[in-house]
Each structure stands twice: as C-alpha cells, then as structure tokens.
C-alpha cells in the first residue's frame, strides 16, 4: 500500500503517474502528484522504483499504517531500499553492466561458490537455484 510522497524530495516530475498500473495518482502541473485512489494500490512498487528521488514509500501491507514517522523513514533510507536492492539508480533500471539482483546473489554467495561442506548455505544456494524461475 502506498503511504506517502515525501514533499521535501518530490520534484513534481510525475513519473509515478506514468508508471502506476492502477491509476492511483492524479497528476499535478509542475507540482506534487496527489495520491487520489490509495485503495487501488496493490503494492507493485513500480512508482517507488521509477522515482528519481526515492521520494515514495510503499509497503507490502494491505492497509495504510498508522502513526508513521516520515522523517525517520526518509532518514533510514527505507524509501529507496527496494530500488537499491534491484540495482536501480535515479529511477532508472541498471544499465550497461547491469546485473539484476546482483547484490542479493553476492550476499547469498558471500562472493564465492558455497563450500560443499557448508550444508545450510549450500541448501540456500540450491533452493535459490531451483526457485529462480
């Protein structure tokens, strides 16, 4: 569920309006788009990915959260965490040397192939292998 657009970060580019598949936003000329139909959001996070300023907070919760500490969320980098995980920068997908989810793989592998004797990591590795598709 989309929670908010951070006023202090939004530049009014309206990219979120373009990419939202369920028309959650109403555009504004040169201003910040309005979250006009929050109930139509189904957490696809496309707006958060495409926002050049990482100004949009979308949760995987099915209803709005109460008492959100906006300042703390922005400060923590939570708004851009998903985009960063997928390797997006400034609202653009990874380019030339693009490696989707490379970060996850790197962490998962610890930079090396799993030690055959490391049962847990090997299982994680193989499970991930199996479930990629």
């Amino acid at each position: 569920m989309i929670e908010f657009i951070a006023d202090e970060l939004c530049t009014g580019c309206n990219r979120c309006v373009e990419v939202c598949p369920t028309v959650v936003f109403d555009p504004a000329d040169g201003g910040q788009p309005a979250i006009a139909r929050q109930e139509d959001c189904h957490s696809c996070r496309q707006c958060a990915l495409h926002c050049p300023e990482s100004a949009i907070y979308v949760t995987l919760l099915n209803r709005p959260s109460e008492n959100l500490d906006r300042a703390a969320l922005i400060e923590s980098g939570r708004l851009g965490a998903y985009a960063q995980w997928l390797g997006w920068k400034n609202g653009e997908p990874p380019g030339g040397e693009f490696n989707p989810a490379a970060e996850a793989l790197r962490i998962k592998r610890g930079g090396n192939a799993p030690d055959p004797a490391d049962r847990v990591r090997r299982q994680l590795y193989e499970a991930k292998d199996r479930n990629y598709i």
Binding site: A81, Y82, W85, A104, L105, I107, R121
Partner: peptide, 9 residues
C-alpha cells in the same frame, strides 16, 4: 542475513 537479503522482495 543471507536469507533476509536474498529474498528482500
């Protein structure tokens, strides 16, 4: 940590 980050989605 591995599990968390590998499945951050």
């Amino acid at each position: 940590d591995l599990m968390w980050k590998a499945h951050y989605v």
